[in-house]
């Protein structure tokens, strides 16, 4: 049996049984958190990694998804599951409008514009008190799953994470993936060989934003509380970007590795180093950046295979 298949089977068994291997509520919570960030990092990677459009404003879509689900659940008696569907539905038109405007800008200017957009969304959430509760936020009654059992949530986010990674894998082998990479490598040339670059960037942004909003809606259902400082901070946008970059920009497993390393290590550091945890976290980031400039994925590839893609034929 080939190694890849074996790895795949072991990983599948592990993921399916994980909540029973780790029975404490805390470790189950960490698993859920890791998978949430796998979803977020992979979704961001479609736009930032494949298409090379570095958004530092993805908290906006996360927040929109979280607020949509929370508001729906708190103001109506509809099932919070509908909130999961509502998140992407609300985020999509926002993404298309933002894309139409921000994609006129290139490189660092695009990045700055995404930061501005997410700050605007945060300020709207903070001040539109009738809808969002302002700084007080929105509290939801738990109703998706009875009690406080974390296991069902684990399986929901597992499906989201696996689905997102599978989507990335599918895109990376399709015309869409190649078009996005062409945009990343040389946008002007991509346009001149006949790629409608604006259209493909919008497709990447839409997918990325919709999944991010879906993850936000999950977050609202899981934590049962949403306010601007938890679902819309700039720090969240930055963390998503870090996960993808540290893991390996534009690769499918990159954001997965990044999420596992960064979320696990930040939890471990918090437990063992208390106040010094951010210091250790920062040092880890610097080490990866120094010694693995292509991210964990690039580093592993070089270590294991001598980087196949660079071997001349």
């Amino acid at each position: 049996m080939n190694k890849k298949r074996l790895l795949f089977i072991i990983l599948s068994i592990f993921l399916l049984t994980a909540p029973y291997l780790f029975e404490t509520r805390y470790s189950q919570h960490v698993l859920i958190l890791v998978l949430l960030y796998v979803t977020l990092g992979s979704a961001w990677n479609i736009l930032g990694g494949f298409a090379g459009q570095l958004s530092v404003g993805h908290a906006a879509f996360f927040g929109i998804g979280a607020y949509s689900a929370a508001i729906l659940a708190s103001k109506t008696s509809l099932s919070p599951w509908l909130g999961l569907a509502l998140g992407p539905v609300v985020a999509l038109p926002v993404a298309l409008i933002v894309g139409r405007i921000c994609f006129r800008l290139r490189g660092p200017y695009f990045t700055l514009a995404t930061i501005a957009v997410s700050e605007v969304v945060r300020l709207v959430a903070l001040n539109w008190r009738d809808l969002t509760g302002g700084a007080v936020g929105v509290v939801i009654r738990p109703s998706v799953f009875s009690g406080t059992d974390k296991v069902p949530y684990y399986y929901v986010i597992l499906v989201m994470a696996v689905g997102t990674v599978a989507l990335c894998q599918w895109i990376s082998r399709r015309k869409l993936g190649y078009f996005l990479m062409a945009v990343r490598e040389d946008e002007e040339t991509a346009e001149s060989i006949g790629i409608d670059t604006t259209r493909y960037k919008l497709i990447a942004l839409s997918l990325s934003a919709a999944i991010t909003a879906l993850a936000g809606a999950f977050y609202a259902n899981y934590f049962l509380f949403v306010d601007p400082t938890v679902v819309l901070p700039l720090a969240l946008s930055v963390e998503i970007v870090l996960i993808a970059i540290i893991g390996g920009l534009g690769t499918v497993p990159g954001p997965v590795l990044g999420a596992v390393l960064l979320k696990l290590s930040s939890e471990v550091f918090r437990n063992y180093f208390e106040q010094a945890n951010l210091l250790i976290y920062g040092a880890l980031l610097i080490l990866v950046i120094l010694f693995m400039p292509d991210g964990l994925m690039g580093g592993f590839k070089k270590f294991l295979t001598g980087d196949k893609r660079r071997v001349t034929g």
């Binding site: 190649y178 990479m181 062409a182 490598e185 040389d186 040339t189 893609r309």
Partner: peptide, 8 residues
């Protein structure tokens, strides 16, 4: 030339 350098 303006090739996509990281592609084959």
């Amino acid at each position: 030339r303006r090739l996509f350098p990281m592609m084959t």
